[in-house]
Design a protein around this nucleic acid. Sequence first.
DNA 1: ACCTGAACACCGTTCAAGT
DNA 2: ACCTGAACACCGTTCAAGT
Lengths: 198, 198
Amino acid sequence: MSPSYNSTRHDRDGVARVALALLDEVGLADLSMRRIAARLDVQPSALYWHFASKQALLAELADRITAGTPHEDASVLDTARGIRDALFAYRDGAELVLSTYALRLGSSAAQTAVHDALVAGGADSPQERAAAIMHFILGHATLVQQRMHADSYGAVLSGDAASAVDDVTAGLDRVFDLGVTALAGALRSSAAPLRDPI
Amino acid sequence: MSPSYNSTRHDRDGVARVALALLDEVGLADLSMRRIAARLDVQPSALYWHFASKQALLAELADRITAGTPHEDASVLDTARGIRDALFAYRDGAELVLSTYALRLGSSAAQTAVHDALVAGGADSPQERAAAIMHFILGHATLVQQRMHADSYGAVLSGDAASAVDDVTAGLDRVFDLGVTALAGALRSSAAPLRDPI
DNA sequence: ACCTGAACACCGTTCAAGT
DNA sequence: ACCTGAACACCGTTCAAGT
């Protein structure tokens, strides 16, 4: 037992794990280094032993959010849905990944997965299409996630609020599918693949 | 002349105008209420007479950035390019509009312009396509603008840095045009419009 | 290897009071 | 109508020092 009241000592992985959990609780705007430190029962300065800066910590979180996404041999639409759902899995996940994307760490794996699915489907310009689809997914998911959060404030207004939210959600799902399908371009049907040219 | 050393008194429009200019100078991350106040030779608390909160000020700036965009009778691609270029006109313009978009103020005018161009072109599902195109424009412009800023740090590395940047820019332009065109779907050619069905 | 304590230079916002 | 002064509850980051 030896009850010393600050026995916990952390490593980089542990810090990232509780930071990710805290992100889901409080959102990106309230995810401060001081709050993360408090949750770890540690002084804020202790975090700088594990991460060079808050930006570096956030980049690590973005990588973890997009880490699970590359599913082998999925269609373009399923790959895109997988990426979107990974962004939705954490509060403000899309915004965090979007704002970390320029430094392109883990999120390039997602783009590669889209690219591979496009090539498997026989699309032309797979490089440009993969980039366009990633831009669309990130923009779409950020706006939808933002909107869900904004709506959850003005909510509980009238009795039909819940069904109205469902309508909006269904509409946004259609927008996503239409967008990804259009951006994927003409694809070989997976049921009846084209024979080789000649 | 009567040289009193704090004669300047401001209105809402004046505050917004210098805030927008300051945004372009320092970027969104460094655009604090205190900095805006200092530029106006005023105490930070004075800003709260003109705007209820920083969020409200930022929303006003986002509206101004997207205000000029709706050009009448333009093609979908030209309308989309106009919106993108309006976002590019100010530092971090895309990110600011994206993060304010959920509250949908001025940016709904942009979406309406895209919608109208789609209807004029005879696209199906213009509502969904207009939403998808806006999501794509905002995601794309945010990522491109971020990337330009990130690159301008590591720049001046080798002699061919400038031409490499040009290559990337040209590639991103192609991604944008391909994306908007694909999302617009099958359109009536503007040179030879379809006759009415029947 | 990992953390504390203290400091530095900042934030957004409120509110009574001034002119 | 528009602003000041002072305060409150926060920020990210650095760095010497501790264990």
